[in-house]
Design a protein around this nucleic acid. Structure first.
Lengths: 231, 231
DNA sequence: CGTGTTATTGAAGTGTATCAAATTGCGTGG
DNA sequence: CCACGCAATTTGATACACTTCAATAACACG
C-alpha cells in the first residue's frame, strides 16, 4: 500500500524536452509533433510488467521513452521466444494495427520503462495527412522485416554457437550497458539457456570475452564476429 | 537464336484488363491507377530467370501479373533459402526500397511469369500523394513481418515434420495447382530435401496424402494441420 | 536419346535439446 | 539489515532427430 517516491516527472506534457523526440517515427516529423503532443498519454511500467497481451485488439502505437521492452511469443509448451527488443525512441504495437488483426505477441517491460501512447485514430489520421510519417513507418517495418528474415535464415543454417555469438554482438550494439541473463540470450538466439552457458564458457576459455559474475565484457570482437558468420 | 512464338499480348498498355488490377497495393487505389498505367513497364521472365540480384540498388516496385516468383538468399555454403513467394497481384522489391538499402535477396521466376514494373520515383510520389497507397504498403509489410516472425518461431521449436506439414498447407493454400519439388519444399520449410522426402513418405503411409509421381494430393487436411501444430 | 536434375533409400555421425542436481546469486519481506 | 526462497548459473550424462554422405533409379529437358 505504501507508495514509493514518484519516479516520473509531474508534468506529463514534456514532449518538448523528450529525449526520444528526434529519433521517433512520429515526433521527428515537423507537422506531426503538435498533434502527438496533444493526443499522447505517458505510462510507466516496472520491469516484468505487461504493456499488451497476445490476442487483444491493438489500441494504438506505443513509443519507448526510456527503458527497454520486449515482444515475445509463448509456445504451446510454455517456452518464450523474443521477437523484437525496443529501446528509447522505438515504437511498438503498429504491426498488428496496420495488419488489421489482434496482437500476435505480448509486450513486456524488460526493465523499468516509460512509454508514450498515441491512440489508433490519431495515428491513422497522421498517416493519412502526413506522408513523412507513413514513410517513416514503412521504413521501420522494412527494417523489422529484414531483421526477422535474417533471424530465420540464421536459425536454419547456423549452429547454436554462431547464433549466440550473433546475439552477443546484437545485444551489445543495440542495448549497451544492459546485462542479460542466459535465458534472455537464449530466447533471442533461438536456443536453450544451457547451450548459451556452454557457449559463453567456451568463448571465455578462448579469451574472447571476460566474465565478471553476471556481466560479460567482449574482449575480441573480431573473433566473435567470425564465429557469428562462419561455424 | 530462333525466336519462339511471342507469348505475351502485343499491347503493353492493358492495365484496364489486368487480372491483378484489384488485388494489388497500387492499382487497386482509385487515384493511383492512372499514374501507374502511364509509368509502368511490363516484362516477361522464363522459369529460372532472375528479376533482380542481391546487392544491387532497388529500381522500383514489381508486381506479379501472372506466374510465380520467389525471393531467396544463398548461404555461404551455397544452400538456398526461400524467404517469400509471390503470385499474381503480389508486389516485390519494395522492402529494400523503403529500408534504403541494396536488395538483400535475389528474385527468381519459379515458372514463366509476367511482371509489371513501376519506377522508384513514381512509387515514392504515389506514397506521398495517395495515403491509401501508403496504407496498403504498410499493411503488406505488416503481413510479411508476421509471416517472417512466425517462420522463425516455427524454426525454433517445431520439428522438421511439423514444418513440412506447415509448408504443405501453406503452399497448397496460397499457390494452388502448382507442383513443388522436394528441394523447393525444403527451402521453404528450412530443412533438407531428404527430410522432406522421408516426411512425405510417412504422410503417405499414414494415408494423409496421395502420391502420383511428382504431384501430391492432400487427403486428410485435419491430420496434417494437427501435425503442423503439435509435434 | 543422352545428360543432368530429382527422387529415393540406407547408413553413419553429431549437434543440441533434455533431464538432473548442486551451487550461487538476487530480491523481497520480515 | 539479515534471512529466506526462488531464480539463475553451472556442469554432467543421455538420447535422438536431423543433417550429411553416398549410391541407385527414375525422370524431364533440350
Amino acid at each position: 500500500m505504501s507508495e514509493k517516491k514518484e519516479p516520473c516527472k509531474p508534468h506529463p506534457q514534456d514532449c518538448d524536452h523528450c529525449q526520444s523526440r528526434h529519433d521517433n517515427p512520429l515526433c521527428s516529423v515537423e507537422g506531426a509533433f503538435e498533434t502527438v503532443k496533444s493526443a499522447r498519454t505517458a505510462s510507466n511500467f516496472k520491469a516484468g510488467q505487461t504493456i499488451f497481451y497476445t490476442g487483444n485488439e491493438p489500441l494504438g502505437l506505443y513509443t519507448v521513452q526510456s527503458g527497454l521492452v520486449k515482444l515475445e511469443v509463448l509456445s504451446a509448451d510454455g517456452s518464450a521466444h523474443t521477437l523484437r527488443l525496443m529501446g528509447p525512441g522505438q515504437a511498438l504495437g503498429y504491426r498488428s494495427l496496420f495488419a488489421g488483426e489482434p496482437y500476435q505477441a505480448t509486450a513486456i517491460a524488460v526493465e523499468d520503462s516509460r512509454l508514450c501512447f498515441v491512440p489508433k485514430n490519431t495515428l491513422l489520421g497522421l498517416v493519412d495527412q502526413t506522408p513523412e510519417v507513413a514513410v517513416n513507418l514503412l521504413r521501420r517495418l522494412s527494417d523489422d522485416l529484414r531483421t526477422a528474415e535474417e533471424k530465420w535464415v540464421a536459425q536454419v543454417d547456423k549452429d547454436a554457437g554462431s547464433r549466440v555469438a550473433e546475439a552477443l554482438l546484437f545485444l551489445q550494439d543495440h542495448f549497451k550497458d544492459q546485462s542479460w541473463t542466459r535465458r534472455e540470450i537464449s530466447e533471442w538466439a533461438g536456443t536453450t539457456p544451457e547451450t548459451v552457458m556452454r557457449t559463453l564458457a567456451q568463448f571465455e576459455k578462448e579469451g574472447w570475452i571476460e566474465a565478471q559474475g553476471r556481466h560479460y565484457q567482449i574482449r575480441d570482437r573480431e573473433k566473435i564476429l567470425k564465429k557469428a558468420h562462419g561455424t
